[in-house]
Amino acid sequence: MKALKIIRIAAWGAVAIVGGVLLAFSGLLPGVERPGAVTSSTATGVAAIGGQFELTTHRGEMLTNEDLEDTPYLVFFGFTRCPDVCPTTLFELTGLLADLGPDADKITPLFITVDPERDTQELLASYMSSFDPRILALRGTKEQTDQAAKAFAAYYEKVPLEGGNYTMDHTAGVYLIDAEGEFMGTLDLHEPKENQLQKLRRLANTAA
């Protein structure tokens, strides 16, 4: 009897978990981005990451996904009022690009601000002077930023802080997109450096 009861509890527990996961991905819960909502340009079954975007670089040039055709690139989201993860990612990428040598020239690294309200082009231009000049900081209007987040199934949200200020929640990963525009996985900045370099070399080698 007892064993049967345990099995029954376990079974209902599994149902609850599956139900919770389905609910979370259905977009019914507030604040949960619905990954399935992003339309893919291909039907390969690969995660729908790497769609259309149109943004402006910190040097004032327009950049769209079409400009990156046949170019491997990496992209991550952040903002300058972020004390840790964003400058650290830029700093680590600067080191990785230096270590990659000539392969680094084949990759276009992108940093998309999720806070275009405060991250002006002028501020980004000054901020980026500390990092590898090949890294492009990108900003757009609210609509363009939403579109870019959707293109990478990334999540961001403005969160009010005490005293009328606000902060941004955002997806922290670094996405790797190959020369064909296909998602090649993410770069984990905490894994051994050699693994990271290997991933970036593989990414660079997708260049024509």
Partner: peptide, 12 residues
């Protein structure tokens, strides 16, 4: 504290 890029609006 960590050194900051120029124009950085915050520092940890």
């Amino acid at each position: 504290a960590r050194a900051t890029p120029p124009g950085a609006p915050v520092a940890g």
